[in-house]
Design a protein around this nucleic acid. Structure first.
Lengths: 208, 208
DNA sequence: TTGTCAATTGTCAGTGGCTGTCATTAGCCT
DNA sequence: AGGCTAATGACAGCCACTGACAATTGACAA
C-alpha cells in the first residue's frame, strides 16, 4: 500500500465490505441489494463486482479470514500430536486469538452477528457449506503431510477432517441459536461436543 | 391420478423433469436455461416455475427420492440395532433397492450421471449440501426417537448423524470421481469408509 | 349438452444478480 | 506537461425468478 492508488483501492474495498456487512446484519441479506451497497459507498454497481465476485463473497469474507487463521493454527501444531488432537487444539486456540485477526477488518461483534445471518439465510448457508468442502480438502492435505501419508490412496485424512468438520458445524450451529454469543461459549461447546463424539458413535444410548 | 387434469399435470411435470435432467447431463447445468427446458417441453417459462421452485429443485429432484428412500429404510430398522449400525444397514440396503424406487422416474444411469453433475457444479453442490442439513435434522429426529432421547438436550443424535453424513458424502464424492459407477462400487466404498472411521479418529497414522 | 366454476396456463412487465464493452477519469512516471 | 495505464462509470444485455391478469381448459351439476 505504497502509492495513493493502492491506498484508495484498499479504502474502497474496506468501505464496500463494511457497508455490506452492516446492511446484511441490520436489514438482512436478501433485503439488501448490490445497488444499496454501492449507493451507500457512492460507487457504481459495476465497481462492487470488481472487488467481490458476488454478493456471497462479501458476506463470507470474514469467514475466509477465520478459516485461514484456523488452517494456519493446524500447520503450527507440534508434530507429535495425534491428528484429531491437533485439530482440536487448533480450533480452541483459534477462538482465543480470533480477536486479533478480525479486529483489523471489523469488530468481532459484527463477525458474530454475520454468523447468525449465514446460518439463517439459505443461500448463504449453501455457499458457506460449499466453501467448507474446499477448506476440508486443504485441511486433509495438511494432516496427510503431517502424518506422512498419501491422501489420494489413504482415506483417513479426509475421513478425520470430515468427522471433525461435521462436529464443528454442529457446535457453530448450536452456538448461533443459543443465547450466549461469547467466544467463551463456543469454546465450551467445542470441548463438550468433541467429548461426546465417541459415546455417540458405537454404543447404544439407552440406559438399561 | 384419477381425472384427466391430474394425469396431464403429472405428465407435464415428468416431461419437465426428464427434459431438465437430460439437458443438465448432456450440455451441463449452467449452460442450460429454463427457457431451453420450457421450450423443449413446449410450455411457457412461467409454467416451469409452477412445478419447480427453481432450477436447482429440478436438478436435485432425484436426490429427494433417494433420500426419502433412505430415511424410510432407517425408520424400518429393528430397534435392537445400535444407532450407527442402523444407519449403516439402511444405506447399504438403500443402495440395493435404489433401482426399484428410481426407475419409475428416470433410468438409474441418469441418476448416476446427475450425481457427477452435482458434484462438479458449484451452485448445485452448494444447494445439495444445504438440503443435506435438513436431511440430517430429520435423521437425528428418527434416531432420537428410536433411542428414546431428547435431541434438543442430548447432542448425540445430531453428532452421530453429522459423522455418518460426513462419511457418506466422502464416499459419494470418491465414487463420483472414480471409474466404476456401479451400485456395487458405492456399496463397497461405503463399507470400506465406515470401517476406517474408527482408525482415522484417535490413533496416530504413522507406522513406527 | 350446456353453462358455470375453478384450476391451469400464457403473457407481460418488472426486479435483482451478474457480465461484457467502451468511453472517461485519475493517479503514475518521465 | 504530457503520455501511459489502471480504475471507474455508464450502458446494454442475459438469466433466474415473481406478481398480476387474462385466456384457456377440464370438472361437474343442472
Amino acid at each position: 500500500m505504497e502509492t495513493l492508488r493502492e491506498r484508495k483501492k484498499q479504502r474502497t474495498r474496506e468501505a464496500l465490505l463494511r457497508t455490506a456487512l452492516e446492511l446484511f446484519t441490520t436489514q438482512g441479506y436478501e433485503r439488501t441489494t448490490i445497488d444499496d451497497i454501492a449507493e451507500a459507498v457512492d460507487v457504481s454497481q459495476r465497481t462492487f463486482f470488481r472487488y467481490f465476485a458476488g454478493k456471497e463473497e462479501a458476506a463470507l469474507a470474514l469467514m475466509d479470514v477465520t478459516v485461514a487463521h484456523f488452517l494456519q493454527g493446524v500447520r503450527e501444531r507440534p508434530p507429535h500430536e495425534a491428528p484429531m488432537e491437533a485439530l482440536r487444539q487448533a480450533v480452541l486456540e483459534g477462538w482465543d486469538t480470533l480477536n486479533d485477526v478480525i479486529e483489523s477488518i471489523a469488530p468481532v461483534e459484527l463477525y458474530l452477528r454475520m454468523c447468525r445471518v449465514i446460518e439463517s439465510t439459505p443461500a448463504l448457508l449453501a455457499a458457506h457449506l460449499r466453501r467448507s468442502v474446499e477448506v476440508e480438502e486443504a485441511m486433509a492435505a495438511i494432516l496427510a503431510e503431517r502424518e506422512g501419508v498419501d491422501m489420494h490412496t489413504d482415506p483417513r485424512p479426509r475421513l478425520a477432517v470430515a468427522v471433525f468438520s461435521g462436529v464443528m458445524r454442529l457446535t457453530e450451529r448450536q452456538w448461533s441459536v443459543g443465547e450466549d454469543f461469547s467466544l467463551d461459549a463456543i469454546r465450551a461447546l467445542t470441548v463438550s461436543y468433541l467429548e461426546q463424539v465417541g459415546p455417540a458413535l458405537s454404543e447404544s444410548w439407552r440406559t438399561h
